[in-house]
Design a protein around this nucleic acid. Structure first.
Lengths: 135, 135
DNA sequence: AATTATATCGTAATCATTCCGTTTTGTAAA
DNA sequence: TTTACAAAACGGAATGATTACGATATAATT
């Protein structure tokens, strides 16, 4: 997923193109790690003085819902990152800087038969710690 | 972990016995699923009119830290449950009622060598959905 | 250019959680 | 059993992330 693909997806779903949305997506493409609403707001502020948190959150949730971003909870705050669009995988996540490393092993393959009468909707497998540069 | 064991642990660590703490632990023993601070407060209120959220949260975090409870984030709210004290395992969690089912497979065994230069501190593997009675 | 629906602004409201000064209570020593 | 003291709880205010909302601005369409 790059900026152009994301903007096309927005257009195709009937959402409008705005500079702010382009900037937001560009931010996540450039960062390529988990970031908070506040991080994004601070990045936007110099170029878009007074940008509202309403705008930030509304678009974060829109992007999340459209599959442009994915989100997780880290240190009690919601974090977002660009959604990786190749095959299903999980993440190691640095608790300090939000950087991720892909984990190419999904535990779901081994457990399907254990949960016969349960309706499975989602799963999360994340490893937390510190990346080499944050240690 | 039952009420008596938890109270002994408190005493042994130098924390005081109080009726409220006994009631709180009793609540989690009885419920045996993920519940919020609010759930606990509503359960306590009839017996302990005006109980403060300060008391609720202070004790929840104390119990969490002592290993009497474990916690996870669910629908944007922190949830707590009595900590299972037998061997390490993960959970299926019902998004509606917080009931859990143990998953006896830990994905960490298969991935240690992938993360050589990363400092691993913790991991989470949870499956979300609906239990038979909530479907 | 006019129209219209969507996006954004600015600010207030909400909700979970934490903080803090004061009062109460459990525990251990006298 | 009192007394003393540290810990716990109270009550209510503060915080911080997130959401809501009426008014205004803007993108896309006619």
């Amino acid at each position: 997923m790059n900026v152009q693909e994301a903007l096309n997806l927005l257009k195709q779903k009937g959402y409008k193109y705005t500079e702010k949305r382009e900037h937001m997506i560009g931010y996540f493409v450039k960062e390529n790690r988990y970031r908070t609403a506040k991080d994004l707001q601070e990045n936007m502020e110099p170029n878009y003085t007074g940008i509202s948190f309403d705008t930030i959150y509304r678009n974060l949730h829109l992007f999340d819902q459209l599959g442009i971003l994915e989100s997780t909870e880290l240190n009690g705050e919601k974090h977002f990152r660009l959604k990786c669009d190749h095959h299903h995988h999980h993440h190691f996540i640095c608790k300090s800087c939000g950087v991720t490393k892909e984990i190419h092993h999904c535990p779901m393959e081994q457990i399907s038969q254990e949960l016969n009468q349960f309706m499975i909707e989602d799963h999360k497998f994340e490893i937390y710690g510190f990346c080499p540069s944050c240690q």
